[in-house]
Design a binder for these strands. Structure first.
Lengths: 216, 216
DNA sequence: TCGGCATGTGACCAGCCAGTCACCTTGTGA
DNA sequence: TCACAAGGTGACTGGCTGGTCACATGCCGA
């Protein structure tokens, strides 16, 4: 976390790179990776198409993966910082309720990023290119591992049912994804109001923590 | 359900149509819709490319949607027949455990269909084409509605916690999808053994029905 | 002020593929 | 057996787009 010392040239480079990634995220999220054209990305970024290749030698796909890197890093960061700062005395259910609400809010705020992942990640994860599939498995693993830590801890402490923490981490992320797909405002067909972090967190927490069976 | 009376010509047409759809499913599932080529589909189906257009006037996209129609109809059918034939005295938890196991087994058996949906449905659901997005919302709605019926009934009977049955239906489908993504054998990176219906049903049922909080 | 280098640029190219259509094959009815 | 209709076929084409590169621009050091 040392303050980075950058030449003016390097700073400008970073600013331009940022502009290109922002433009690409917007365009890819809207059209989908394969239908989007680099001409459109370049136009939106207000650069010539050739310039994109000065910043991302690998071309279209390199830009996509740079975006994926950022999106996944954001999520991992969200998980780690949330569980670092949460007070350890709060009831486990509350802690995770808060986590779910924050994650939903985070993804709603970055709806372009969520859309990009929803549109492309599954396809890439099942890609025939070994490398691509491995990349996604690795990223998913990072997320699951980060989330499994606090889950495991709670299980040790006896405040969560003892089971496969890793599996539970995956299912939790899946539920958040599922809620966003369910509640995402898709044109006029939105089944509910636009996704609301509090509503989503309540729904997921009730189902996952309290269970579907009635309790007295 | 009346026995269909078909001329020999019509029967042959259906057989050919079937072969084309089978070939398309295989190719689309493997390459992804946009990367797959009609030449490859035609070759695999052992027909000339032009013939595809005699059967699917709408071209590539028409074939894709014909496949979607079948896959969704299969799932709705699975839901309806399962809950029709299940004996009403079985404990609710068991009933749904069985349902989850059957659904997982069904999707594992038709892994091409699952792969196709995983790769394409999200992208199409968020498509800019109003029509495509509406199609997917409609299909998802059909599934959720079919599944909401037995859930609603169990809530009425007091054997399930009273909450939004529709939302619960969506989350249940999302969990099954999530488990398959989690457990699907992706090359040598498979985190577990290939998805096992019993294992998946146990995991999902424990989380959803019993809840993550420990009980005595 | 000038020369040269780093970097932006967009016209261009080559490959790809959905969709077409003129032609051929097959089967049927007279 | 022949003529014709129905329908299969795949070479072809038009449009598209990722990636390239020769040139333009402008910044910096001498």
């Amino acid at each position: 976390m040392e303050a980075p010392v950058l030449s003016r040239r390097d700073r400008e480079r970073l600013v331009r790179r940022r502009a290109m990634l922002d433009a690409a995220l917007t365009v890819f999220a809207e059209k989908g990776f394969q239908s989007a054209t680099l001409d459109e990305v370049a136009e939106r970024a207000e650069f010539g198409k050739g310039t994109l290749y000065n910043y991302f030698a690998g071309g279209k796909e390199a830009i996509l993966f740079a975006l994926f890197d950022e999106v996944y890093a954001d999520v991992v960061n969200l998980i780690e910082t949330y569980f670092e700062r949460v007070e350890s005395e709060r009831p486990t259910r509350d802690v995770f309720h808060g986590f779910i609400a924050e994650t939903i809010a985070h993804l709603v705020e970055r709806s372009d990023a969520f859309m990009l992942m929803a549109k492309e990640a599954h396809r890439m994860a099942f890609s025939e290119e070994r490398e691509n599939a491995a990349y996604f498995l690795g990223q998913r693993e990072r997320i699951a591992a980060a989330l499994a830590l606090p889950i495991e801890k709670a299980m040790q402490a006896g405040t969560l049912r003892r089971m496969d923490a890793h599996g539970v981490a995956h299912m939790l992320m899946g539920n958040i994804h599922g809620y966003l797909m369910y509640a995402c405002p898709l044109g006029e067909h939105a089944p509910t109001a636009p996704p609301d972090a509090e509503h989503g967190a309540n729904l997921i927490t009730t189902i996952l923590f309290d269970g579907l069976l009635p309790r007295d």
